[in-house]
Computed example of a mutant assay.
Amino acid sequence: MPQLKLSHITAGAVAVLVGYTSSVAIIFQAIDALGATQAQANSWLLALGIGMGVTSLILSFRFRMPVLTAWSTPGAALLALGGGATTLPEATGAFLFCAVLLTLTGLTGWFERLACLIPDTLANALLAGILFRFGLEAFSSMEEDIWLVAVMGAAFLMAKLYAPRYAIPLVLLAGILWASAAGSFGDIAQLNLTLATPEAVKPEFTLSAFIGLGLPLYIVTMCSQNMPGVVTLRSAGYVPPVSAAMTVTGLASLILAPFGGYTFNLAAITAAICAGPEADEDPKTRYLAVVAAGVIYCLVGLGGAAVISLFLIAPHALVATVAGLALLSTIGNGLSHALEPTAGREAALLCFMGTVSGISFLGIGAPFWALLIGLVAHITLSRPAPALFRKTT
């Protein structure tokens, strides 16, 4: 086995840091929207950390390439947006439904065909719409603590200019230092440094949860997480094991869903850190950076209670600003890709605005209806006009 280098450990640690600081705030909001108890919240962080760590270790060792996995960030945003109308047992049933779909996708090799069923414009519009609210909160939180947000915003701009890869960790560090100096943190005695323990939730299976949460969770995970993950590995010169990755992450989701491991998928942004030359000049041994990240993910998962309690005492403005700034590029890319083709622009806009609206019918949340509206508009506007209405020369 090749020797583990400091660069592998550094790249793995940075990937974990970026992964958590960029989206753990959204995980926390999803947990809160579903009404989970403190013990259940701790279990979520344990299941997610262990799930990402173990699946990353399995795939990287098996295929000797930097195949890093992650939780579904847009999936967490989906839960935070539409989870309020769903109980935690019903949501757990939807997680299992999504896990079955992911596993079947891997076992049957459906990925290539399924990716073609939903136009890229609609997939990107759906993603941008789901994440849009979190971007807005970075600005609305200025009413709570304008100086904290201003400091974090300035740190974001400077980091983007001089150290773009570490922008979000530096923003978080700046926010923590300012909030600490200003006394904005809650009682430090509330920190829970005990190891997290798993707590299962008995699932309830309802059609409305399957359609309103499970199916959209599957769609955004496939289109907005797994697809970029595949592209990331290919751009780094690897031939990713797509079906095997879908199967492993799907099975992990199936096993860990009752404990809070709602969905696992291929990583993209964090995977790029481990798959780049900074991790190792030799592409054949860069997978060791993922091995390091996998071990760190497991250790951080065991300390899930501490992670949750840290966010409980942190100022809301700090958490909201970190989440909003971390998702800024994702929202921008989603809107750019959704609106760039002139032909599908109207359908993409309808899908985006429908998602942002938060509409809900029959217990089914906005993402499903917005996607349905977008698909109907796309199919309708893609057809040629009837001969009666065509321009004549």
Rank of each mutant, 00 (worst) to 15 (best):
G12R: 04
V14A: 12
T21S: 12
V24K: 00
A25M: 15
I26P: 02
I31N: 11
A39C: 01
S43Q: 05
A47C: 07
M52H: 07
L57G: 01
I58G: 01
I58S: 01
L59D: 00
R62E: 12
R64W: 10
M65L: 14
P66I: 13
T69Y: 01
T69E: 01
T73G: 04
P74C: 10
L78Q: 05
T86R: 03
P89S: 00
A91E: 01
C98L: 13
V100L: 15
G106D: 03
F111C: 10
A123M: 02
A128P: 09
F134P: 03
G135W: 07
L136W: 10
E137M: 15
A138R: 02
S141D: 02
D145M: 07
W147M: 14
G153T: 01
L157A: 14
Y162G: 09
A163K: 11
A163T: 12
P169T: 08
L170T: 07
L173K: 03
I176T: 04
L177V: 15
N192A: 10
A196P: 05
T197D: 09
T197H: 10
T197G: 08
P198M: 06
K202S: 14
K202H: 11
K202M: 14
L207I: 12
F210P: 08
P216C: 04
L217P: 01
L217V: 05
V220R: 00
C223W: 10
L233E: 09
G237N: 03
P241W: 06
A244C: 04
V248H: 03
F264L: 14
L266A: 11
L266C: 02
A271T: 14
A271L: 06
C274T: 15
E278I: 11
E281R: 11
P283N: 05
V290A: 00
V291K: 02
A293V: 12
A293S: 14
G294D: 09
I296V: 15
A305R: 06
S309V: 08
I313L: 06
V319Q: 05
A326C: 06
A326Y: 09
L327N: 00
L328R: 07
T330L: 15
G334Q: 11
S336F: 11
L339G: 05
A343V: 12
R345Q: 04
A347D: 02
A348Y: 00
L350A: 12
C351K: 00
V356M: 13
V356H: 10
G358Q: 08
L362D: 09
A366T: 08
F368H: 02
W369K: 07
L371G: 06
L372E: 10
I373G: 07
H378D: 13
P384H: 11
P386M: 06
L388V: 14
R390G: 13
